[in-house]
Design a protein around this nucleic acid. Structure first.
Lengths: 155, 155
DNA sequence: TATTGTTATACTCTATAACTATA
DNA sequence: TATAGTTATAGAGTATAACAATA
């Protein structure tokens, strides 16, 4: 006779899918799971240009926002000043970006893309657009989804 | 006369918001930004129960899926076997979970919550539900959002 | 021989404190 | 005194290879 206190429970063949019912109400959990589903392909494609996702993001934001400084860039992508400094060091030594002190306030650095950075950014935007795939969504659903996500993180 | 090759560009007062137009079409980018907006509050609230987000997720999934093993748990939350093993070691030594070899296949570990783990899980589900806030969304938008995210990562 | 899980370890990412220079 | 950015470093998270036990 089995003793439920000490015996392992009888094993049933597991059903196909896991019950995540207590988690899928959480926007945070769902955002993370969706991100982890999508990002490996983006990472793989961007690696062909020797870029990681965050570096692509930096290139794109500098390209779209001339004269942006490190403070505003870091706030936008949620990277702390020390970590952004070392990231930009690397991108600068890779020849992708330039940093120039703002003549009106020499504390801040004005960021710009080098010609190589511009070219890499252009290629990366093409690559990333193709790699960011969500095959289970219709175009309308995808637009709806990004619209709602933007509403969450605000811009 | 300014030389555009060497002079820093003239600085204009920066407008209020950053142009992210080339990024916000990416579901991956938007998922990450929304996640980073939401998760600090969840992390802060769960810390009161000495839990990190991933530990809450593990508790909830074991609670909702009796007899789940490490392979299926790891696949669900996208944690590799080595990293899951050490995570569960910690949770076991914290008295939150039990591991028992499956008598039908002694390679696999059957996971279960201890009474303390069940109690912690119950509290954490309450805390997490309150902490997972998206004040800019209506209830209908929030449901729509999670519905679309689930469609992306599939279950 | 394949599968489940573990150990050990390296690598990346993130967080914190102390500092420089400019305002 | 406050702000933008840097340096150094520690900690958390993630990835890889080699291994043991079981099937």
């Amino acid at each position: 006779m089995p003793n439920p206190k000490t015996d392992p429970p009888a094993v049933q063949p597991q059903s196909e899918h896991i019950d995540q019912s207590h988690l899928i109400g959480s926007v945070g959990y769902c955002c993370l799971q969706a991100y982890l589903e999508i990002v490996p392909n983006i990472r793989k494609q961007l690696a062909k240009l020797q870029l990681r996702p965050v570096e692509y993001t930096v290139l794109s934001l500098i390209n779209s926002n001339p004269l942006i400084n490190q403070k505003r860039l870091g706030q936008t992508i949620r990277v702390s000043p020390p970590n952004l400094a070392t990231l930009l060091d690397r991108m600068q030594s890779d020849g992708l970006i330039d940093r120039q002190r703002n003549p009106n306030d020499r504390r801040s650095q004005i960021l710009a893309l080098t010609p190589k950075g511009q070219e890499t950014c252009r290629k990366a935007e093409n690559v990333a657009a193709k790699a960011d795939i969500t095959p289970t969504l219709t175009d309308a659903e995808r637009e709806q989804l990004t619209r709602l996500l933007i509403k969450v993180f605000h811009p």
